[in-house]
Design a protein around this nucleic acid. Structure first.
Lengths: 357, 357
DNA sequence: CTGTTAGCGCTTTCAA
DNA sequence: TTGAAAGCGCTAACAG
């Protein structure tokens, strides 16, 4: 039971962990044969007798291959990176769920990184993922609109691809790469027009940080939707806040105080919309949708449980995650940058109604 | 610009990716020196001149170290595994968020695995994580109560630890390992007693799969809480369903039809409670909490936005994730199995009220 | 079908 | 301080 290993250069402490050569030795075959049996790609080229002996030895020793060693030898590892802003945000966990399903189907592990909207951290994680030789990386967090960041991001992406890794984005990020593109503009435009058609003439928008691409696009959508009907969105009807429930709540309170006669509030995501709803609830003089209509964006799972049930713009988040990861895994030869436009659809529930005259 | 590499055995395709020796060469130093500069642990032992040259070369080449190679040489890799049932479930994404924060603080990457309550898949992921030489693994999903599974799990855990990895659990899982133990029993007992004190005498429980440890413990809690006041929970007042919103909704509809005079429903998680609330909403003859009180468990972020705001039992989920990961990373010498009991606290909101006579 | 062997890129001992 | 060199565990030519 002596594995006869002594401390030699480069040989770091290794308590347990059977190695392939141990398995081979135990099975009475060569290292190569053991490797072929255990990791051989498809076509069986080893006799059943040896094959069986190797399997037996491996399971006796509870052998699992050494991933890093394999990755080194094969110059490729079975992992993909997934970069989000925040896992606890249901928007991202839905995308993550979709991506993980696909990863699972391909036998890949997922390395998850949460950036909390910190650009430097995002770049740093990208480098770490590159170091780990991830096969690909999915940037699911919204991009930022500032050019400095965009340039640095493009650099990291280029480095990643140069190394043979693939990159897919959700959203444009201002860079040239495969991407799933949710139709933020179209969805927001549709919602804005819908409010207009309900008779709303004083519409306010509560948005997240404008430096986020998602926010910028949704805002543009509102403007263009309103533009279609000859209306416009006055700048003072736009309130910027944290892209969270609390952000939405605080912004709504301020807004309602500042412009008491708004008849509709468009929160640029459902989290904020939940906050808006809470704020209006706490306002004894207003009821949704009688006095003010509220509309959100994303259609998170719990939008339907808000009170009143939230009218919102639905994005097929899990599908977006799936599609994006597929962009990484299912390479199409010769095709340039691929793009998957994804529709956003208005879901009318109970938080919107005709404008009060 | 010729790196003079030819195709040799074991040398898989490697498009780009500068190597350390390239950096060393470019900086005019030895491989060892470059390694010391770039990855040297603390104490600077390289002259400033060389140091600077190495850094320059590395950044020109956009060098990042090869993680797998490093892991192989060091016999340790900077990753921890996180195993959950489902990332899209806010319960798990909250735990994940906490764990990831700690991982970040320690400079570690997180490999995320979602099992969807599939025991075999869980074991399989554990093996994959072992193969990846993860430094530790956090099993955040509830354990299962069946002995067969428990034995196999114990085997995997043992193998993992034998290899020098650390394992931490959320919940007991029937195995002997470091764990954060949320007080499911205590929380459920408290909630049950609270309902009793409100005058409820016909209390029903809608629970998830009983094979889940979490469910079993919460159910025991209800029983013991009721036991304290000399009452008991009739078996026909317990309905088992999917641990989801839809499960809760369907179960509530059936329950209300079968036992129309229940005055309180305890859903064993908030997801189910949301479903229960929806079911009661759709029932024209009942209003919460006037006719039936509803209580949940977990205190997910959106519990407060349900209608009426959900009374529930709060578990500090992010903290649980943090603590569990810390159990992995902050080894205490000589201590045996460590355990972090975590309190659950009742949060009274608007979905519960005095029982209707 | 099976075995031998030369690496994959990095760490670390040992000697200079 | 610095460098040379021996591995870490595995893959994949290549030769039998």
């Amino acid at each position: 039971m002596d594995n006869g290993r002594s401390r030699r250069p480069g040989a770091a402490a290794q308590t347990g962990a059977a190695t392939l050569s141990l398995v081979a030795q135990r099975a009475g075959v060569s290292l190569a044969t053991a490797s072929r049996v255990l990791h051989g790609s498809g076509g069986r080229v080893v006799s059943d007798a040896l094959r069986a002996r190797v399997f037996a030895a491996a399971s006796e020793l509870r052998y699992v291959s050494n991933g890093p060693a394999q990755a080194l030898a094969r110059a490729s590892s079975p992992v993909v990176g997934l970069v989000v802003h925040d896992v606890a945000d249901p928007y991202f966990s839905a995308i993550a769920a979709g991506a993980m399903r696909v990863a699972r189907a391909h036998g890949l592990m997922v390395m998850l990184a949460a950036t909390f909207r910190d650009r430097d951290l995002e770049l740093e994680y990208l480098a770490m993922l590159r170091a780990q030789r991830a096969r690909g990386v999915l940037l699911a967090g919204s991009g930022f609109t500032d050019p400095g960041y965009t340039a640095r991001l493009a650099g990291q992406i280029e480095a990643f691809e140069q190394q043979g890794g693939r990159v897919a984005l959700v959203g444009q990020h201002g860079v040239h790469a495969d991407a799933v593109l949710p139709d933020h503009r179209g969805g927001a435009a549709q919602a804005a027009r819908y409010l207009w058609e309900l008779g709303h003439r004083r519409i306010a928008v509560i948005c997240g940080p404008r430096e986020l691409e998602t926010v910028a696009h949704r805002l543009e959508g509102v403007r263009s939707g309103l533009g279609c009907v000859g209306a416009r969105l006055p700048e003072e009807h736009v309130v910027e806040a944290d892209f969270t429930r609390e952000g939405g709540r605080a912004a709504a309170i301020g807004l309602l105080r500042r412009i008491p006669d708004v008849t509709a509030i468009f929160a640029l995501n459902d989290l904020m919309a939940a906050g808006v709803l809470a704020a209006v609830h706490d306002d004894p003089r207003r009821v949704v949708p009688r006095d003010v209509s509220v509309i959100g964006f994303d259609d998170l799972p719990h939008a339907v449980d808000l009170h009143p049930a939230l009218t919102t713009v639905r994005l097929p988040l899990e599908e977006i995650g799936e599609r994006a990861l597929r962009l990484i895994l299912e390479e199409e030869p010769g095709v340039g940058v691929r793009t998957v436009p994804t529709a956003a659809t208005l879901v009318v529930r109970a938080s919107t109604g005709p404008a009060r005259r």
